[in-house]
């Protein structure tokens, strides 16, 4: 039985848990065993290249020395939500640009809100950098005149503190885009506790979707995290079968309008249906 090593910072966080669930599904189908190196767990074993036949690395948690050793030992590696162009390891990521562009379009064109504050992720993480860059481009594309950026680091508590500081500094805004949906959900709660009408006064949206977003009625771009894990596992297993893969697999996302933004009067989403000729 082949062994797949999964390296992550904390297997108990929402995102990582869903990714690993997806990995487990595909690994079971392929009759592969999973071993997890979760850096936040003191008793978690630190994997070395000898410990598995291949590795899935969630975000930028693996040390360069480990990756170079895996390369020397010809152990296949796939990154999840991360990419290192100078190493020949493939990756699976969400289409961050598509998602952020869709959120800005929804807010500015459909909800007609043009004072947007963007809540950042962790600055050295691939997804966070991509989403921030896409936000800046989206402001230009959709002619949004006014915006701000605050720190969030994918931590709801930090996001809350940042937004409260932003408000206390006298900044005005009519919409919030959070780099992930857990921060967005927390901000919806805080804004409502402070007496703001969401979505009547302030639109709040987030990137990514899950049961928490659904329960909170949060408008998001759906990025199926479990699917991310499944597709990454498929990519790695394909490599374990001897196939070379280079580059990045990008997964599309789609807008889901719920209660924290206005539903558009005209639906103008990227259409999955096609007009057949």
């Amino acid at each position: 039985m082949r062994v797949i090593g999964v390296i992550t910072n904390d297997q108990n966080r929402v995102f990582q848990r869903s990714v690993i669930a997806g990995i487990r599904t595909i690994a079971a189908e392929a009759n592969c065993e999973i071993v997890i190196d979760s850096r936040a767990d003191a008793d978690s074993r630190r994997l070395q290249p000898d410990d598995a036949d291949g590795f899935l690395v969630i975000a930028n948690v693996a040390q360069r020395e480990f990756l170079e050793a895996a390369l020397r030992q010809r152990k296949p590696v796939s990154f999840i939500s991360h990419h290192m162009p100078d190493l020949p390891f493939p990756a699976v990521v969400f289409n961050n640009r598509q998602g952020i562009m869709e959120l800005v379009r929804h807010i500015s064109v459909e909800c007609r809100r043009n004072q947007i504050v963007f809540v950042r992720g962790i600055s050295d993480q691939y997804d966070a950098r991509q989403r921030e860059a896409a936000f800046k481009d989206a402001l230009m594309r959709y002619h949004v005149p006014s915006s701000g950026m605050i720190a969030g680091e994918f931590d709801p508590e930090k996001a809350i503190q940042s937004l409260m500081n932003y408000i206390n500094e006298g900044n005005r805004f009519s919409a919030v885009i959070a780099s992930d949906y857990m921060m967005a959900r927390a901000l919806v709660d805080v804004l409502r506790e402070m007496g703001y009408d969401v979505p009547g006064e302030i639109t709040v949206v987030g990137f990514g979707d899950g049961i928490e977003a659904h329960a909170a009625g949060l408008t998001t771009v759906a990025a199926d995290v479990q699917e991310l894990g499944e597709r990454a596992a498929r990519q790695l297993i394909h490599q374990l079968h001897g196939e070379t893969i280079v580059g990045v697999t990008t997964l599309s996302v789609r807008l889901i309008v719920r209660d924290t933004s206005f539903a558009p009067q005209k639906t103008n989403f990227p259409s999955k249906g096609v007009k057949r000729r």
Partner: peptide
Amino acid sequence: MGVIIGVINGLIAQ
């Protein structure tokens, strides 16, 4: 060719 095959393989995996 190496890159073309690497990309096609990436999609076949999915």
